[in-house]
Design a protein around this nucleic acid. Structure first.
Lengths: 127, 127
DNA sequence: TGTGTGTTCAACGTTTTGGTTGACAAGGGT
DNA sequence: ACCCTTGTCAACCAAAACGTTGAACACACA
């Protein structure tokens, strides 16, 4: 895993970690509090938190010997931006295709490639 | 990996797969077209597509001996809903905390747990 | 000063992931 | 009929993910 977007998606791919995020949305919590609902050891939860922290989804402050975990909402925007971008493009294309089909009224199948779009080497992570 | 949300996040955790989604947002493509930009074998790309398909992000139609890949935009909503929900909660809590802090003007540190919120066993995947 | 609590580190085992090569099925094109 | 292209399947491999146990570290408190 290299870039942050990968780390964020990867972090949220685990149900336990998603659940912990849900829990943290309610309020900060300690590692033990977070571990309590699950049938895993505290060490495992600590590792999960490290994953979330590396993704920037969570921060840990050092308060006496316990480290309250805090959810960082900003990183969510990174995902939202990525998702919205391509969802929008896909939907636009869908409408465009609809229009084309309406015009030629059923010549090509609705599953055909749209003009073989030039293989434009998508720039992926940029933006 | 069991539930769809996990599969979707996991699928998008890989840069190549995200790039393929970006490419598919422009228009449908065949496996070879998708494989062309990358330094991996066609078989590897085929596997990536299987992951995307299992996540419901992509569908493959059988057209002669080639199988055009099509992006399914709807699944994105699943993620967006999940993300927005907890981002909103976290931000609300942040504002609430701000208000509390403004009221008591700096008694507790800004990192302290907000009243130890009763360990309310978050219902996670529901909704 | 010791003892207990909260958290992390290190080593280990198992499963999943992402890649490879090689073989094979399914359909055009000539 | 033959081959050639397109894509998948199977077996294998190395590395990463997720869990465990056991030890260590950092503090509070008696």
């Amino acid at each position: 895993m290299d870039d942050q977007l990968s780390r964020v998606f990867s972090a949220l791919a685990d149900p336990i970690r998603r659940d912990m995020v849900a829990r943290l949305a309610v309020g900060d919590a300690t590692v033990n509090e977070l571990a309590e609902p699950y049938a895993v050891t505290v060490q495992a939860v600590s590792k999960h938190l490290k994953v979330l922290e590396d993704a920037g989804l969570v921060s840990r402050s050092k308060q006496a010997q316990r480290r309250p975990v805090h959810l960082e909402a900003e990183v969510f925007d990174l995902m939202t931006k990525w998702i919205e971008r391509y969802r929008r493009e896909a939907e636009q294309r869908y409408r465009r295709l609809d229009a084309v089909l309406a015009e030629m009224t059923g010549t090509a199948g609705s599953a055909g490639p749209v003009e073989a779009p030039e293989q434009s080497r998508v720039e992926g992570e940029a933006s």
